[in-house]
């Protein structure tokens, strides 16, 4: 399978990764190679096979509804790229 510019732009948007105009062909080619690898799956007969999401057949364990976390926003925000007044900051979003 071969990806074109439209697909690369779509994937770029979904994954929020910029692909520069001059990189599109190269990115498309490498992604297409990987999709070729995927196409090996087509021939396999998987009728009636249950999809497997986890290696072990376990069920979800539950946590008691008890507060165990204390405020540590100052510590966490020390490593934030931009924070002020207890808030993480991003460029203005118009809603």
């Amino acid at each position: 399978m071969s990806l074109g510019k439209t697909e690369v732009e779509y994937i770029s948007r979904l994954s929020a990764i910029a692909v520069e105009e001059n990189e599109v062909d190269q990115v498309a080619a490498k992604l297409s190679n990987i999709l070729d690898l995927f196409s090996q799956m087509e021939a396999a007969d998987t009728d009636g096979v249950e999809p497997m999401a986890h290696p072990l057949d376990q069920v979800q364990r539950l946590r008691a509804d008890v507060v165990t976390e204390q405020d540590q926003h100052e510590k966490l925000q020390e490593i934030a790229p931009s924070a002020e007044a207890g808030l993480y900051l991003v460029p203005q979003v118009i809603e």
């Binding site: 994937i11 992604l31 999709l35 995927f38 799956m41 998987t46 096979v49 999809p51 497997m52």
Partner: peptide
């Protein structure tokens, strides 16, 4: 590359052919 290919494998129209198929193979 892996993020992009992974997003593509989950995207509308490809989920069954890629993601679900791969999960079935995983069981096999």
């Amino acid at each position: 590359r892996r993020i992009m290919v992974g997003a593509y494998a989950l995207s509308a129209g490809y989920y069954d052919a890629y993601y679900l198929k791969a999960q079935k193979l995983r069981r096999m």
